[in-house]
Design a protein around this nucleic acid. Structure first.
Lengths: 204, 204
DNA sequence: CACATTAACTTGACAATGTAAAGTTTACCT
DNA sequence: AGGTAAACTTTACATTGTCAAGTTAATGTG
């Protein structure tokens, strides 16, 4: 079977190859042809599964997003009983993931996917993630750690806060003397304390 | 003078052309050759002024950053006497700018410039902007609106909060029912109230 | 003022890329 | 068995980043 027609799993293989390229060479190194070559198909083969380059990138981003979701979900489960550490540890996990998978994270959240809302896979995982945050906020409200109020709005604030902090960090926009003076975890905790009033005593 | 040697202003013209392309076609449409053609020089002319494509993009981003800085600075000046509205209106201006100049904003903050810290122009304007936020935080602390504490750290939190909110909005990651239920200004105010405890009464 | 030097460009070339069109192979259904 | 459609290949083309080698004009230097 020297001609591998009907690969059967090309779509997935291309996404996987894309993730590999992404990890090694960054967004800049991503190309349809390179992914195709890596999988061992002709350079036009991807067009059977992806409308264009953006579609492949979107798929890669969605896959990365799923990984992140799984991590966040597991972390949330582990701290189900303590809403405060639920928030803290999930945020910490989020940050860790972003640092360890910079390219993946950026491709997911930095507008490389030009019209992310066009891709249903992306929309879905995005909504799921948000719901997870909302759940966390509700738990905190029940525990009296967060003041009452529209949970979706609070969740947006919380996420925006953690997300913004993460992105500033990845873009090296956080002053180096802050990074020198405090640990990353301290900075994140301080940032969270700003968002969750009841958290202040967590700070060292 | 049919041959325009020593254009004298090519570097600037290319940046300007880049900004125009960016506004019309987005990041994707940006190319050295297109910018060169727009200015009326040969496709290799840019290499006399920019090491590579990244360098041009970095220059464009820095210019966009400067525009944003000027806007923020002017807004801050206008509300010098009232620290609270200083923060609120600057944040609002920030958000408005991002919405009205989406591509510019993204190119500046979404990692399109791969190693932004390599470009001194970028580093400088970035630091200036941060200092502006620190000043605002200090003013708020003097006015008792923000609790005491490391101003740089608070500034980071504040900026991260506004920045994250802005990016989530640009990436359509803010749930549509929130956008339907509240105005953008309300959402931002609610978000800021989370960051600035004394702000709660501002909310409608 | 002749002349070298150099910065600012142009021309020509090349490889990598996205993408469309047309062909080929294989699986599957009737 | 035969037809149809999906999964691929081949060929082709325009766009692009980048380099190398010219060409031109400004700027000194003797």
């Amino acid at each position: 079977m020297q001609n591998d027609y009907h690969h059967g799993n090309l779509k997935n293989a291309l996404i996987q190859a894309g993730l590999a390229i992404l990890a090694q060479e960054g967004v800049h190194g991503l190309s349809l042809r390179k992914a195709a070559k890596r999988v061992g198909v002709s350079h036009a083969a991807p067009y059977a599964h992806f409308a264009d380059k953006q579609a492949l990138i979107a798929a890669i981003a969605a896959r990365g997003y799923q990984d992140l979701y799984i991590l966040i979900y597991a972390t949330a489960q582990k701290h189900q009983n303590d809403p405060q550490s639920l928030i803290v540890e999930t945020a910490w996990a989020y940050l860790q993931y972003a640092i360890q998978n910079t390219h993946q994270f950026k491709i997911t959240f930095s507008g490389v996917v030009e019209k992310a809302s066009d891709y249903p896979e992306f929309r879905e995982i995005s909504m799921n993630s948000f719901d997870l945050v909302v759940d966390g906020v509700r738990a905190c409200q029940r525990a009296g750690i967060l003041q009452p109020g529209d949970p979706e709005m609070l969740a947006t604030s919380l996420w925006a806060g953690v997300h913004g902090f993460t992105l500033l960090l990845l873009e090296n926009q956080i002053p180096s003397y802050l990074l020198a003076r405090y640990s990353l975890r301290q900075l994140l905790l301080a940032h969270l304390a700003q968002l969750l009033p009841g958290l202040a005593h967590h700070l060292v």
